[in-house]
Design a protein around this nucleic acid. Structure first.
Length: 207
DNA sequence: TGCCAGGCCCTCTTTAGGGCCTT
């Protein structure tokens, strides 16, 4: 096995801020194992109030769809089992972490794994990309899509493939055979000016 | 109902401000 398993997840939500009462309306996640997607999790969830027309248009998730979906608590119970103790990855992880911690907290659970950010890693690994939005990076890396964006499972799958592409980029560019989760976390957290020195150490086998 | 934030990074920085990215 080249890479330790990770869970890549994505939330669709009613807005940007749990502090202002926003809730999750869909979760999608993939288990990345052996350089591919080994398992998937997806569910809409009912936040208990109507979602805005902006979110309906942005995600394609309608009020009718969430009204017939199971409540957040039920979905998050199932997701907690899927998540297990795997390390986690999300694109702009600070956003998904807020909602994950909120929804888990509401059912008396807590996150028990680190979460790495594919966006911060991509800024170091693909500094010349036009920008580091998920959709841009997917095109930049030539990752196949079915054209679906802003739905949780589609975005989680694309982020998963991006994560694998970045691991392969490190392997090919720096001659290393294993790119563990904590190496990717360090790449994501390194300051831009320090990145060349750090990556040279990676190439020299000093990680 | 309609509108909102926050974490991180960068630099013309650190006694700060602004951009990116997520829904």
């Amino acid at each position: 096995m080249d890479n330790l398993p990770v869970i890549v997840l994505d939330f669709e939500t009613t807005g940007l801020s749990p502090q202002y009462g926003d809730r999750a309306i869909e979760i999608g996640a993939v288990l990345i194992e052996n350089d591919g997607i080994a398992d998937r999790f997806q569910s809409l969830m009912n936040p208990g109030f109507r979602i805005s027309s902006f979110i309906e248009a942005y995600t394609g998730i309608s009020n009718d769809m969430v009204e017939t979906a199971p409540p957040c608590a039920e979905v998050m119970q199932q997701f907690a089992e899927f998540m297990g103790h795997y390390p986690l990855v999300a694109h702009n992880a600070s956003f998904d972490r807020k909602f994950l911690d909120l929804e888990l907290g509401l059912i008396g659970k807590s996150r028990n794994s680190d979460m790495a950010c594919s966006m911060l890693a991509a800024r170091r690994i693909y500094p010349d990309a036009p920008n580091h939005k998920l959709g841009t990076l997917v095109r930049y890396c030539g990752i196949h899509t079915d054209g679906t964006f802003h739905r949780a499972l589609a975005d989680a799958e694309m982020t998963g493939h991006l994560w694998l592409a970045m691991i392969n980029e490190i392997k090919a560019g720096y001659g290393v055979t294993r790119v563990p989760f904590d190496l990717m976390q360090k790449i994501a957290g390194i300051a831009r000016v320090q990145a060349p020195v750090f990556l040279a150490k990676v190439a020299a086998g000093q990680f």
